[in-house]
Amino acid sequence: MSKQPKLSLGPILYYWSRDQVMEFYDWVATSPVDIVYLGETICSKRNLITTDDWFAIAERLTAAGKEVVISTLALLEAESELKRLRRICDNDKYMVEANDMGAIHLREGKPFVTGHSVNVYNGRSLELLAKQGLKRWVLPVELSWQTMADIQKEGPDEVEVEVFAFGRLPLAYSARCFTARSHNLPKDDCQYRCLDYPDGLMLKAQDDTKFLALNGIQTQSAHTFNLLPELDHMRELNVDVIRISPQSRITEKVVGLFHRCLTGEMSLEDGAAKLERIVPVGSCDGYWHGDAGMEDKAQAAAMKMA
């Protein structure tokens, strides 16, 4: 019989006010999530929460019984960023989510998780990283369940797999800040405009189709990747951890629905219907099924049934 997957909360990908972050983690301490990823992964200029603050939040959440992982910056350019990275990788108290090969280099020999921006596309890569300290890998979001299953088959048994199962998809990173660009501001003088977009800034095609969400130097999908309807399938595939990526307003409800569906208190059909009502813009799940990421296979199947 397959074991019950754990529920995790990914790092906050947006720039929220200090109060909002603190309130969010106060709630997280009481929530049913098992694992919490903490830290700034997008932009080193976002400094309302310092590295010290993140460690303090980590301590509180650990005391509340959560497994805490400290996440590192995905795009490392400046020496100041490497300095912060070294401090995180040197820590012996918490697991580290490496989001760049530089972090893996600094963390080698100690336990780490690879985030979705580290390209693990085959079993040989997984095997190599396992020798270097990898305990868990997050499936790169463009890979399908079939590829994940193939990699699991080839890779070492003891490495856990985590699936990004809810949230706007992280699609690209750039040296440019698209939020600053939208305000005609240079990145060096961005005036922290991303504080105004706690779920990203909507980008639409010229025919008004909502397409992407700009989050500073990161580009996300406008649609929300949503694998709640796939929970049973993920359990069958021996997925160890199911990740929810925080959104500013709905995360508490989303966690509640995933949790109730996992424990069997709520049927997947009910959970999916309730979730669909609160998902901004709409769901997508194409990547999981080996298709274009923006496709919504669950919705297409439901339409066909109807």
Binding site: Y121, E142, L171, S174, G290, M294
Partner: peptide, 21 residues
């Protein structure tokens, strides 16, 4: 490329095919 190469999947988001895959 304006994005970090190897970490941009905008193309597969729209088409299912990216530089990586």
């Amino acid at each position: 490329c304006v994005m970090v190469e190897g970490r941009c999947i905008l193309s597969s988001y729209a088409t299912g095919r990216s530089p990586n895959t």
